[in-house]
């Protein structure tokens, strides 16, 4: 009896994970194309996706890996870009039921992404390990297989098509940041300021010696620290009060 209930929960998770998996397929395809443009070996590209499962961090890392940057650079970049997972993991830790043993917490941690976190958190009550792993299954498969397809396509397709595909990943980033920017002034401020500082670091000769990894770290830190001062977000309690 208990087994069938657990199984049901795993299946529930898989079902909820399907749309995330499909979305990841296309984003990671674009990532794979980008990696092949940067001439990263296929096996390395696939390994990045299978061990990281995150879009922004991987793209920043990709540039550093392609230019054989320093370890300090890649470590700092990932800490800044992925710091949001710290908060998500913290929030998720209040949402887990007793099936999350210590060992399973170590395993589940690897699959915390923006989308998986958002869906898990939207469920009423506590979630089980089986539901969480079911939820992570298709996104993980989608992320890995999309990367592989993109990297292969990038190396096989003619140049003019690969060039056109080169814009895909950035177009998706725009599609992520524009809708919330039209709704929240804080996000709009952060997006515009960030684009401005990033362009300045790139075009102004004094700063252009800065590697892309460090430029992103500095931009993200400065922009988030300033935006949080001017546009503090509503905390959960306030949202509940309202």
């Amino acid at each position: 009896m208990e087994k069938s209930v657990s199984l049901f929960k795993f299946n529930n998770g898989v079902k909820d994970g399907l749309p995330i998996g499909l979305g990841y397929l296309s984003v990671s395809f674009a990532f794979g194309v980008k990696a092949s443009i940067l001439q990263i070996p296929l096996i390395i590209t696939l390994l990045i996706s299978m061990t990281n499962l995150t879009s922004a961090g991987q793209l920043a890392g990709l540039e550093i890996i392609a230019t054989l940057g320093t370890f300090a650079e890649i470590i700092l970049t990932q800490i800044i870009i992925n710091s949001r997972y710290f908060l998500m993991s913290l929030t998720l830790s209040q949402k887990t039921d007793d099936s999350f043993s210590l060992k399973k917490r170590f395993i589940c941690s690897a699959f915390i992404t923006d989308e998986i976190f958002a869906v898990a958190l939207s469920k009423p009550g506590k979630i089980s390990v089986k539901y969480f792993l079911g939820l992570a299954l298709l996104p993980y498969i989608g992320w890995a297989s999309g990367t592989l397809l993109g990297a292969v396509a990038g190396s096989l397709l003619p140049e003019f098509i690969v060039n056109a595909l080169g814009v895909a990943l950035y177009a998706m980033f725009i599609a992520i940041i524009v809708p919330p920017a039209t709704k929240e002034r804080g996000v709009l401020f952060a997006v515009v300021l960030s684009a401005g500082i990033s362009c300045a670091l790139y075009f102004v000769p004094v700063f252009s010696a800065l590697s892309s990894g460090f430029a992103i770290i500095i931009t993200a830190l400065v922009v988030s620290l300033i935006t949080a001062l001017i546009f503090p977000i509503k905390t959960e309690e306030e949202v509940l009060d309202a």
Partner: peptide
């Protein structure tokens, strides 16, 4: 705000 700042800067 970190994710928005990062995506825009990238």
């Amino acid at each position: 705000y970190v994710p928005y700042a990062v995506l825009s800067a990238m």
